[in-house]
Design a protein around this nucleic acid. Structure first.
Lengths: 116, 116
DNA sequence: CTATTTCGTTTCGGAGCCGTTTTCATCCGC
DNA sequence: GCGGATGAAAACGGCTCCGAAACGAAATAG
């Protein structure tokens, strides 16, 4: 059974969750950074710069820079692929997992509060 | 009856919708801009710079600049409050309403595709 | 062993957003 | 009227992001 939600509810949900994220003291993640974060934590590894760039439809330097920022915030880590040392594997971190978990709980809570 | 959704579904929904927004040709809106857009179109008017700044927990110049950008994209319009000419009223536009509607439909569609 | 391809990063100039501070117009108490 | 309070915008310096292009390291083809 899929999730049934009306457009007005969907928009209020998006509004409420985004507002919470804006008001939180953590630095705002860009849309690209959120997509990278969720991709790395939801989809099976391995994740590479090239793969993420293709998936998001942006250039590789954009991914590299996003990973710089997110790595500095402890949300992801980078490791050389020993099989093919040209590749960089993006790895999950404890802090990143906690952040993703927090976002998931936030969405669930806001969904629960929606008017029927 | 509230919307029931599990954390894993919630995160996948957020990922799918954000990815669609990143991949769309329209320029990425920041989290603040999305919050402003949805606030203006979901909550009853009037909306002022000061009111939005308080709600989002950011400074007024940040709102002014976001409105500059969004106004340039045709998503909102500004009008002087004739009752108190110090105030600026943020108004909805046809393009903004279409954008909001599109986002709502996108979320609904992505929610429908979620695995149970 | 050399030439080419692939992958990620760095560099570059340009653009946008940030908070603080200052400016400007308007309103209101006196 | 006039002085202070208020609302928004402008000015300012700093930071981050952008895509394009150049670069270096590593793998691969011949």
């Amino acid at each position: 059974m899929p999730i049934e939600i009306r457009p007005s509810q969907a928009l209020k949900l998006w509004h409420d969750v985004t507002l919470d994220l804006v008001r939180s003291d953590t630095p705002d993640l860009t849309a690209r950074q959120i997509t990278i974060l969720l991709t790395v934590y939801l989809e099976p590894p391995p994740h590479t710069v090239r793969g993420l760039a293709e998936k998001l439809g942006v250039t590789k330097p954009a991914i590299t820079r996003a990973l710089d920022t997110m790595g500095h915030q402890g949300l992801v880590a980078r490791r050389r692929d020993e099989k093919d040392r040209r590749n960089v594997i993006i790895q999950r971190t404890v802090d990143g997992a906690l952040t993703v978990e927090r976002i998931g709980d936030l969405i669930v809570a806001r969904a629960k509060d929606l008017p029927r």
